[in-house]
Amino acid sequence: MMMGQNRPMIEISGLRKSFLLHNQGAARIDVLDDAQLSVAPGECVALTGASGAGKSTLMRMIYGNYLAAGGRIMVGEVDVASAEPREILALRRNTLGYVSQFLRVVPRVPTVDVVAEPLLRVGEEEATARDAAKEILAKVNLPERLWSLSPTTFSGGEQQRVNVARGFIHPYPAMLLDEPTASLDGTNREVVLGLIRAAKARGAAIVGIFHDEDARDQVCDREIDVTEFVPQRGAA
């Protein structure tokens, strides 16, 4: 593997997570215990494990979307587990990209503007950002007639590509990919795998969830089975 002595870009240690459902009899669900993960620049690590093992939970915690119960989540210089909201927002703006399975946008905003937004947030000129958006939309083969329309009515595969375009438009040093190839056909799947390879080549540290085993084998350097972080059911 490349860059042996590089400091990890993403480093997780002793991470714990449980959900307490106050309105459902205060049920407590322990999801992760002592989770560890380290991802170097240029490396892609796949999270594996059965459905419900906590892959998405771990990924959402790295993004600051789920709150940690304990432990550290270092992304660059920021400990997401203890950072202030504005530090996490700055991290998401500049450093940490996320391609989720869901598209959440203001209704009626054209696709090209949805995709350009990450660049506008880092202060890019509007015209430059829109040009970059068009370029990457063309790359993911989204038909040009759709660019001026809102993505809310698009098919699953089209929305997926809008998400991918939005996630890859800015060269984030760290990226989280949740099933980036899930609803794509063969050609577009190859395009997305190419984007992932290019991101690795420029030094991005990537954590991904891929049910598509062949895609995983093509772009991932290592696998981490999150099942090992599932808390042991203690003697009751």
Partner: peptide, 21 residues
């Protein structure tokens, strides 16, 4: 209090959980 998406997706307080659900 917290990051908007965190409070909405992983609410901690009983009342917030009720509100979101």
């Amino acid at each position: 209090t917290g990051l908007t998406d965190q409070v909405l997706d992983d609410p901690q307080h009983a009342y917030t959980q009720l509100l979101v659900s």
